[in-house]
């Protein structure tokens, strides 16, 4: 299978994302440059972390209008699996592919630490190789990661099982509503999360708990 990893000016985690995608047997991963609307026949797309366009105006605000994003939105609306990590999550929220928004951390600090993340739904292309209730140790590093959705929307999302990841064991680092670490869209093919699974694929760097998430993306594809 082939993964595409989007790169904006200011992205900084695209190399780790490529390496994480290539932990899947037989997979290759390619960069999708933001100015290029060609998705290179990829089967799944990762929008990685970083500080796209310097976080100018509002996190993710400028990146959402890069040419590649029009293609990513079309790919997602056609059912293609898309995962946004950290800044990628912020970008996907800005495009409207994912509900809600990310606000500055409650305690005004840049957070950089390992967090416990519970898998709350396995009905997404990014979690189907997991078991509901699995707790993964994954690094978190961000200043604008406080998940917010208006009350009515949040209730609807909870009722529909759109909360895919939650901070567990009192590890909510940023004041996110309902301890939300990651969500999916109503069609469940687009997932976003603040913690960085691409940094948790090798025990030598602290944890390989996120291998199952990348392996999930390879499951269910007809042409792996």
């Amino acid at each position: 299978m082939r993964f595409g990893v989007v790169q904006f000016p200011g992205s900084c985690d695209e190399r780790d994302a490529l390496a994480a995608c290539e932990t899947v047997d037989g997979a290759e991963a390619v960069i999708l440059w933001h100015r290029d609307a060609d998705l290179k026949d990829v089967d799944a797309i990762v929008v990685p972390g970083g500080f796209s366009f310097g976080d100018y105006l509002r996190v993710g605000a400028i990146a959402q209008f890069s040419p590649v994003m029009a293609a990513v939105i079309a790919f997602a609306n056609n059912g293609g699996p898309v995962v946004g990590i950290c800044n990628g999550f912020q970008v996907l929220c800005e495009t409207g592919l994912l509900p809600g928004a990310l606000l500055p951390n409650e305690r005004r600090r840049f957070i950089c630490r390992q967090v416990d993340v519970e898998v709350c739904s396995t009905e997404t292309p990014f979690t189907r190789a997991c078991t509901a209730g699995d707790v993964l140790s994954i690094p978190s590093k961000h200043q604008t990661g406080r998940y917010y959705a208006p009350e009515a929307l949040l209730e609807q999302m909870e009722a529909d099982g759109q909360v895919v990841f939650r901070y567990a064991n009192d590890s909510n680092p940023n004041g996110s509503l309902n301890d939300i670490a990651g969500v999916c869209n109503t069609a469940r093919n687009v997932v976003g999360l603040m913690p960085h699974p691409e940094h948790a694929v090798d025990a030598r760097t602290g944890s390989d708990d996120a291998l199952a998430l990348f392996a999930s993306l390879a499951q269910g594809l007809t042409h792996v």
Binding site: L57, F65, A101, A149
Partner: peptide
Amino acid sequence: KLLANPLI
């Protein structure tokens, strides 16, 4: 569309 995010 761009300058504000009406959700927040």
